[in-house]
Structure formats: C-alpha cells, structure tokens
Amino acid sequence: MTEVARARPTSSDDGQERMPGQSDMWVLVMIEAITFSSYFVVYTIYYCRSAEAFLRSQSQLDLALGVINTLILLASSWSVARCVERARAGDHRAATRNLALTAGGGLLFAALKLHEWSVEIGRGNFFSTDEFFSFYYFLTGMHLLHVLVGFIALGVVYYQLKSPARRSLEVIETGATFWHMVDFLWVIIFALLYVMR
C-alpha cells in the first residue's frame, strides 16, 4: 500500500471528515455540473416555447430503453462505489471485480445508446429534424463523450488496483468520482428528454 493509501482512513464510517478523491476532480465535477445545468435550463426554455412540438418528437423515443439505460448506469455507479469501499477495506480482488462490473455496465449503456440512435436515424429523426432532436443528439452525444472519458478514469483505477506497489485510495476515489458524475448527468438527461411534459 502506498503512503497515500496508508495516510487515509480505511472506512468511510469512522466519523471523520475527509475529501473523497482529489480536490482537482471536484473542481472539474462542479464545472461540468454548472455547464450541463446551463444546457438543461436552455432546453427547458426552448421546450416551453413550443411544448406541443417537443412532445410530438419526444413521444417517438423509447421510454423503456431510457429506463433500462438509467438502471444500468445506476448499477454501474453502485458497483464503482462498492469498488472504492472494498479498496478501503484492503480487499483489492473484490474491488477489481466490482470495477469490471462497472466497465461492463458502461459498455452496455454505450451499446444501447448507439442502438437507440440507429433506431431514431432509421425513423428519419436526425440532428437537423427539429429542435427536440437537435437537443436530443447534442445532450446524449455530449454525455456519451463523457462515458468514453469515464472509461479512461476506470482504466486509471484498474492500473492502481493491479499492483500493490502503486495503490492509492485517493486516485481510486478520484476515478470513481468522475464515473458518478457521468451517472448523475444521465439521471437529469433522462428526466428532461424522456419524462418531462
């Protein structure tokens, strides 16, 4: 275990306050959260200007697929949280297993998103079809880009877990933090694009 790992509590329930992951990652998370928030508010303003047209296009989306994708990302977020919890307990084998589950969930999410896009394109719904589909492809595309960056974060976590010589809980938590951000951004996108009326 590295000096960094030894210096940090092994349990999150020890009653002590501590930063989960590196501060720099939290700055990035807040910048991303504020940036996406502005996209979501702009979407809502455009939605309210022509709600009927937005709802006509929204009704073509597969709500069940949106729900399944949400459940998949929530499960992957749980498994990466479990990965961190196991790493804190020193059970790196279980941590790696949970990390693999997380990556599997991410891959499944990306595959279903590509499938959904292909279905919509097959129906003649392109980026330029109307305002709703412009927002749909922009928001889901930006999010998928973050999922891909999330795989790099998961790769860094795997690299840390693989060798006892370089295990750093702080870096593992930092990678997990990015993946959780990908999860909560999708939770908001799902509500706006699939549910809100």
Binding site: P20, A81, H180
Partner: peptide, 13 residues
C-alpha cells in the same frame, strides 16, 4: 448519488 455514492456525506462542510 452525491451524498451516498460519491461519499460527500463524509466530506468537509
């Protein structure tokens, strides 16, 4: 997600 999964409930105020 923020409080439980990201463990912010144990983070500095």
């Amino acid at each position: 997600i923020i409080r439980e999964f990201m463990d912010v409930r144990h983070a500095p105020a």
